[in-house]
Design a binder for these strands. Structure first.
Lengths: 364, 364
DNA sequence: TTGTAGGCGTTATCAC
DNA sequence: GTGATAACGCCTACAA
């Protein structure tokens, strides 16, 4: 303990500063907030007193009670931090969000969904969306607990925006991607190149994140709408294309799944693979490389996201570019609007086809 | 607007609920917080009233003023969200932090360092560490504004922990990595394999993130302590090893830098490269592959982090494993201790050498 | 087991 | 320009 103030349980208050400066608390408040008229001399006196007392400025907790705003926007993730942040799309989206909410002096609080009531063996119960001082919340990705989260937040009067998931609540603006249509455009590109034997490497479909072939039942029952829609888009063009789900959007997962399709007699092999993310696509390419299958000469590969996968060189992946940062910005703007008492805008984003060098005409 | 309560500016308060239930506010408070004795009948009546009024529970803003705790721990990053979250080590550390602070019902608020006073052309001024309702803060990585951030937080009486950076303040526990010693151990491994011509692919050294050779002056003046220490460790063993800085910890950056070292006559080529991160190492390997240089037969590569780079298969990178999650946990525990009025513990972590298959004896 | 009183630190509103 | 007053919504002694 080097400093006098270090151990003090009682930090100076605005009142103390005011007293020392010989003014009233309200005047001192004005001197800090800049709202309203204060003479320069008075302000200086107040600031001087604050310095002397080592006063660090108005307490944000008290301020947020009084103003009814905490300056905090919650981002509700369905997974733990580690998993959510491995997804470059989520990160880009967060970046867009944080950019926009800066306009209302807000910061991002990371939350995960409310846990089941009983199954918390960890003994730890982090700050939940039930008792975090939020001005607004952004739900990223739909999930089983979606509804519950929304109910809690609504009861609190916290404005909500949903990204990639539709709670079906007219008061909740949603930010969506044209997953089905975009995937269909990619598939059509393959068909134009003459491909007929096409396989799909899919994102996780259900909570268990199974590595398994997609049966019609699984496709119908799957909890993940994004995966489902992208499957539909591919099947719109190639109704019989076999698909396998992976345990997550990682290159290694893409490689495992691709090996199942590729490590077979050449006659059974697909001539093209539709991967549901760029990371998966990167793994597909590695799998092909390892089997001596040339991309794109012998196998065309298409991704989804446009995430500029690091280390994929010399390949320039053909993919559907998702405007991830822009989606985050849209969510942020919706939040800002709602915080200002306006309506948040629902927006549908369109994936842009990027032609790289990983697709080619079907081998003769 | 589908619902009566949607537009209500005035949400019900605890007092309103109490009134409706025919009890006093304090009793209603007890019914919610679970602190103190309330008869089951009364509690039920209160809860019932709450349901009828659509009361979502006590307002966290008021609660945090009253209790003096917001349940929020700030993580101060030196870069914008997008950049910080591309580093797997930072993410793992965040994960460890969030795990531990769950024990005190806290969540993570993402902040970036206080901006310069004038150069904010963007017009956006996000929530800063000056006015966020923080119970504690974790500074990740040292930086020029380190001191200023600390001064602000100290004046507020906010407990601080620093990761990978030493503010030299006895009240700030620090969580460090043995960057120099760990790197030295890796270098010694290379020396034992007979390597003499070794090059270094380094992390950014100064704020500009230059891609350039490291001169003694740059090494001495560099702002980034982590980079500097790892350079020292390598030079402890190979004093003349040439080094190049990259623009960031990415595979593509590693590839660029490695090409500078490798795309030369064979006699001038290093037989081993020390990369300062696993992602950089992945790029080094790709560069070698693209030049037809076999790893590890013709070139040994060593990394730093132990981040299990996705998509690096079939290589198992020889590296120094940094206990990133554990470091986060240590930081979280220090925070929890300080929040409980105890002292936070400073900790030094040791990198563990992992022998993979990317190093081999120097070619004959 | 329940109610009463007071205050957490700030800021908005009004007089002066 | 400045000061008094009254909330903001909740929690916690303490008294009943």
């Amino acid at each position: 303990m080097t400093d006098v103030d270090t151990q003090a349980d009682h930090r100076p208050t605005l009142a103390a500063v005011a007293a020392r400066a010989g003014v009233s608390a309200s005047t001192a408040s004005l001197a800090f907030s800049g709202t309203g008229p204060v003479s320069d001399a008075t302000r200086e006196r107040v600031l001087q007193a604050a310095r002397e007392l080592n006063y660090g400025g108005p307490d944000p907790r008290a301020r947020s009670l009084r103003r009814g705003r905490s300056g905090i926007v919650g981002v509700v993730l369905e997974e733990r931090v580690r998993d959510a942040f491995r997804d470059p799309i989520k990160i880009a989206t967060l970046d867009g969000i944080s950019e926009e909410i800066g306009a209302v002096d807000s910061g991002l609080l990371v939350l995960t969904e409310v846990a089941g009531d009983s199954d918390e063996a960890s003994g730890s119960n982090p700050l939940t969306l039930r008792d975090a001082p939020l001005d607004a919340a952004i739900l990223m990705g739909c999930s089983p607990r979606f509804e519950e989260s929304i109910a809690i937040l609504r009861a609190r009067g916290v404005p909500i925006v949903a990204i990639e998931g539709d709670p079906g609540d007219p008061d909740v603006p949603i930010i969506l991607q044209d997953n089905r249509e975009a995937t269909r455009r990619g598939a059509e590109h393959l068909r134009e190149l003459g491909h007929e034997r096409v396989a799909i490497v899919a994102l996780p479909l259900d909570k268990e994140h199974l590595r398994a072939p997609v049966t019609p039942e699984r496709a119908a029952a799957g909890a993940n709408a994004t995966t489902r829609e992208r499957l539909r888009g591919a099947w719109d063009v190639f109704p019989d294309a076999p698909a396998r789900t992976t345990a997550g959007s990682f290159a290694d997962e893409g490689r495992y799944a691709a090996l199942e399709f590729l490590d077979v007699p050449e006659s059974d092999r697909p001539t093209a693979i539709i991967a549901q993310s760029d990371l998966l696509a990167a793994g597909v390419i590695r799998a092909a490389e390892s089997l001596g299958i040339a991309v794109p000469a012998e196998l065309s590969v298409i991704g989804f996201d446009g995430a500029r996968v690091d280390g994929l060189w010399p390949y320039d992946l053909t993919t559907l570019v998702q405007p991830a940062v822009e989606k985050g910005r849209a969510a942020g703007r919706a939040i800002v609007a709602m915080l200002n008492g306006d309506e948040g805008e629902t927006q549908l984003f369109t994936g842009e086809f990027h032609l790289g060098n990983t697709t080619a005409p079907v081998p003769a």
